[in-house]
């Protein structure tokens, strides 16, 4: 088992995240919270990257699954009194069902139709979430008390800041590992073939629809997981989780960080959160900068930060 340069780099980053951040966090207040949210958005971005970066399907309505995952967890906890993992499972199952149902019909659509249809679907989700106030709390939203994470012999409370951070870190790592394995598997090669030349995929006898569909459902699942994690960290979900800005965020993350790199989205999320934490207070219109960055990236560094670095360093 020889470790490539890239894997070594990844391990180093993970160690920094696992140990470095909490240690730094004892002297820099707010660092751990910022990185917790970054890890959650990182899961969202990684899931989205499978769809966007690996199979070149641009969904503009992924916050539908984000909201479903969040509410799946929240409602399980509030109304069904389920435990942590059970509630998480409910959220994921809910997302999977919707993703399969929706994906069956929308994945076949051509690029621009796909984009626009996902917009319509997410708005339907948003309006319904706003309307079903008794279930979702509408735009005011609902709060919950997060159940403890029970591993049988030991129990952890998410209300402890370090437990919270490590929980999100572990989910991030699990997502990363699963998605990396997916990408390097046979299916992953199909994804890359789809993004390189969709027509040839069919000529070679592979099922284009199957590949795109699996990518869609997988990305929706991790999006739903991210939604549930965000609901956990804020102990809160509202119809705003379905709003269009949560659909645009993963696109921004992936484009900035580098689509098709899995880690790129995480980097994009960190940059966004740094702006949110430190620039927003002094310049509330900081989103202009993101608009300019997006245009600049397309023009000058279309592969995003990590994509461009990868090219320069030429690691495997």
């Amino acid at each position: 088992m020889i470790c490539g340069k890239k894997t070594l780099l990844e391990i180093i980053v993970l160690i920094i995240l696992a140990l470095g951040i909490p240690i730094l966090g004892t002297s820099i207040g707010g660092l751990v919270s910022l990185m917790s949210t970054a890890l959650i958005y990182g899961v969202y971005a990684m899931g989205y990257d499978i769809l966007y970066g690996f199979t070149h399907q641009t969904s503009y309505g992924h916050s539908l699954y984000f909201g479903l995952g969040a509410y799946g967890f929240l409602i399980s906890v509030r109304s069904l009194n389920l435990g942590f993992f059970a509630a998480l499972l409910v959220g994921i199952i809910l997302v999977t069902i919707f993703a399969i149902a929706i994906g069956l019909f929308t994945v076949r659509l051509s690029e621009s139709y796909f984009v626009i249809t996902t917009i319509i679907l997410v708005w339907i989700g948003y309006y319904l979430a706003m309307n079903m106030v008794n279930i979702t709390g509408g735009d005011d939203g609902l709060s919950m008390t997060v159940p403890p994470i029970s591993l049988g012999f030991i129990e952890f409370s998410i209300y402890d800041p370090l437990v919270s951070y490590f929980t999100f870190f572990i989910f991030f790592v699990i997502s990363l590992v699963i998605l990396k394995r997916l990408v390097s598997s046979h299916l992953g090669k199909l994804f890359i073939a789809i993004r390189t030349n969709p027509n040839r995929v069919e000529f070679l006898g592979y099922n284009l629809f199957y590949g795109k569909f699996i990518a869609y459902v997988v990305s929706a699942i991790f999006t739903g997981l991210a939604g549930a994690l965000l609901a956990i960290t804020f102990r809160y979900a509202s119809a705003s989780y379905f709003a269009i800005n949560y659909s645009v965020l993963p696109i921004i993350f992936c484009v900035m960080g580098g689509a098709g790199t899995l880690w790129g989205g995480f980097l994009g999320a960190i940059i966004y959160l740094l702006f949110l934490y430190f620039v927003s207070a002094s310049w509330t219109n900081y989103l202009i900068i993101f608009g300019i960055i997006l245009i600049a990236i397309v023009k000058f560094a279309p592969k995003g930060i990590l994509g461009t670095l990868k090219k320069k360093i030429k690691v495997d």
Binding site: G30, V32, G141, F234, S238, S240, L273, Y277
Partner: peptide
């Protein structure tokens, strides 16, 4: 936006 507000809450308290 509520989740941005919650994020800022933590930032104000911790940072």
């Amino acid at each position: 936006n509520a989740s941005v507000g919650a994020e800022k809450f933590r930032k104000l308290v911790e940072f």
